[in-house]
Design a protein around this nucleic acid. Structure first.
Lengths: 91, 91
DNA sequence: CCAATACATTGATAGATTTCAATGTATTTA
DNA sequence: TAAATACATTGAAATCTATCAATGTATTGG
């Protein structure tokens, strides 16, 4: 995993709303619908959309269209790669 | 590890200069002197000082004064805790 | 003790990020 | 096909971050 990628993932993980989204994603069995996010995050819909985009740009989540809904799924592979990089830092 | 902590560590890891410092810290057997950092990062001394502070504020490195020099050491425990948190996201 | 060295802090500026209101786009339902 | 729903995008304002020049603070050497 190159430095640019690490940078983008780290940035995506550096916001409390986005961390919360990932945590709730686990609670909900790795699958969340967009409108469910507003139940636990007190932000407007565009703000939530923005945060979700940061997460998907970092490949931390998959975005799956389902009719007029959108489903988000955790990409645990990329988390594993990220953790792998962090472990290399320990030498 | 609480969300604030995860946030701060992630933010510290979201800059290429700071990632490079951590990588070089491993190369140099987990111990770097401040003036050595300017050998591989093309920034002024205050900028480097700023980045080092972000890393130490996130507890990613220990700062050890040695006379008029300062030595930086990796805090691998906090990296382990951070990785531990990331693994909980996978459910 | 004075000059030099090593690093930190301050102040300023440019650029990035977060947020919301407004608007756009695709999809479904009536 | 018109209205409603679900989400994305745009534009703008406020805040945060990265950077450098200048300055401050210890510490060491002469």
């Amino acid at each position: 995993m190159d430095v640019r990628k690490v940078e983008r993932i780290s940035k995506a993980l550096s916001d409390p709303s986005r961390i919360l989204i990932l945590q709730q994603l686990r609670e909900k069995e790795d699958c969340l619908y967009c409108h469910e996010i507003s139940d636990f995050i007190d932000l407007t819909q565009p703000s939530i959309s923005h945060h979700v985009k940061q997460l998907s740009d970092a490949d931390l989540i998959f975005v799956v269209k389902e009719g007029r809904n959108v489903k988000y799924k955790l990409n645990s592979c990329i988390l594993d790669e990220y953790v792998g990089f962090l472990n290399t830092l320990k030498g």
